[in-house]
């Protein structure tokens, strides 16, 4: 079980890398606005109305 002495720090390190990435994202302002980006993805080139009227 002495493998624990290696795997545990590695697991923590991997988590810490994820945490670091997350903190970087927040600090860069990616979480400042959670509203508009979610809507922006819906903007496609197909016009909504022409689709509807052809139905």
């Amino acid at each position: 079980m002495s493998v624990l002495y290696i795997t545990l720090p590695i697991a923590l390190l991997m988590g810490a890398i994820g945490l670091y990435a997350c903190v970087r994202c927040i600090a860069a302002g990616q979480y400042d606005d959670l509203e508009s980006p979610a809507l922006r993805i819906l903007q496609d080139d197909v016009e909504i109305q022409s689709k509807k009227s052809s139905e």
């Binding site: 810490a16 994820g18 945490l19 997350c22 903190v23 927040i26 600090a27 979480y31």
Partner: peptide
Amino acid sequence: NRHQQREHLIAIAVAAFLAAN
């Protein structure tokens, strides 16, 4: 204000990491 908001979020992220582990 923006700075505070980020600080809060970072604190939550760090706390969540520590708590989960």
